[in-house]
């Protein structure tokens, strides 16, 4: 289903969602100049919004810290942000959501904590029109338009908003709006796509060539930033924090040596090179990288995906 809406009609859709009990979040610059989601219906679409540095969408479905159960009576604890309509998600993050959905909901065990929050989440992604800092989403097939992971995907075409429905709820919401011309959208997409760099995907695969791995390992300071900000990094750890009668699940990072250490103190991957290999196995081998570029923005050693790209592609 492809519809055509004015900005005012987009706002109507958001108002409808509010009426259905959703909290609408939209991108806004705060008083310090950082992009942080704000509650309410936006006045206008912020053209200059690149993406959030922090992966708020992942945070909604998988909070980086959440209580899981009570240690006294093993009563499950369920943390939620309530029903959220996330307006202005970038396509890379919607794609990331599709990856985490597949991982948390479509394998042997379903994660109910995730599932309940996911059901309460309505994603309205907005297609990108220019590449943001450090991103290579087109190469990874996650941008500038998402193929999955959204309820509605909006395209800002010629002063109007073309709306693509990705779920039944969205089809219902958009039903009464006029149909859009798919051919025109295709033309627009082609034009936009040209602005996005396309690298040789075949080189962005596991294994990491060892000179590249060594280069990255020498420069990794083990801050975990690439992982704390990765929209598809969902490794977690469960433990009882000191002084609390709950077990929390908190995000864990495979570039920390403690991640790989066993009870006796020995490590499964004692060197940074092995940890680095483990990470790239996941991001490029199994394939959970969307090319959003956050890791490169936050890497204190300048040794994240942009360095990987530069080193493997050799300045292409």
């Amino acid at each position: 289903m492809l519809k055509r809406l004015t900005w005012e009609q987009v706002r109507d859709v958001l108002r409808n969602l509010e009426g259905m009990g959703y909290t609408v979040l939209h991108p806004a610059k705060n008083e310090f100049g950082d992009w942080i989601p704000r509650q309410g219906i936006p006045e206008r679409w912020p053209e200059d919004f690149p993406n959030y540095l922090f992966p708020f969408l992942r945070e909604i479905v998988l909070p980086s810290t959440e209580p899981v159960f009570d240690t006294a009576d093993y009563r499950p604890i369920f943390h939620t942000y309530g029903k959220i309509a996330f307006f202005g998600a970038r396509p890379c993050d919607a794609t990331a959501l599709a990856y985490t959905d597949a991982f948390y909901l479509e394998r042997l065990f379903r994660d109910k904590h995730y599932e309940k929050r996911r059901k309460d989440l309505f994603v309205i992604s907005v297609a990108c029109t220019r590449p943001c800092e450090n991103s290579f989403c087109r190469t990874m097939g996650a941008g500038p338009f998402a193929g999955k992971g959204f309820d509605i995907q909006l395209y800002p075409v010629e002063g109007l908003w073309y709306a693509e429905a990705g779920s039944d709820a969205a089809r219902e919401l958009l039903r009464d709006y006029p149909d859009a011309d798919a051919g025109r959208l295709e033309e627009w997409r082609k034009k936009v796509l040209e602005r996005f760099p396309l690298y040789d995907r075949t080189k962005l695969r596991y294994p990491v060539p060892s000179p590249v791995r060594d280069f990255l390992s020498d420069r990794c300071f083990s801050c975990g930033g690439c992982i704390w900000l990765c929209p598809t990094c969902t490794c977690y750890n469960e433990r009882q924090p000191a002084g609390l009668n709950v077990v929390v699940r908190e995000q864990d990072a495979c570039l920390l040596s403690g991640y790989h250490r066993l009870a006796k103190g020995a490590s499964l991957r004692p060197t940074m090179k092995e940890m680095m290999g483990f990470r790239y196995e996941c991001k490029l081998g199994i394939g959970f990288c969307t090319g959003c570029g956050r890791c490169s923005t936050t890497c204190i050693g300048y040794a994240a995906m942009d360095a990987y790209l530069e080193k493997t592609l050799g300045g292409e």
Binding site: Y104, L108, N237, E238, D252, C254, E281, C282, G285
Partner: peptide, 18 residues
């Protein structure tokens, strides 16, 4: 017995290869 933390294939710690 490879460092399993969740037992249900979600936490990521015990992964070897894929």
């Amino acid at each position: 017995e490879n460092h399993m933390k969740c037992g249900v294939g979600l936490c990521g710690h015990c992964r070897v290869g894929d």
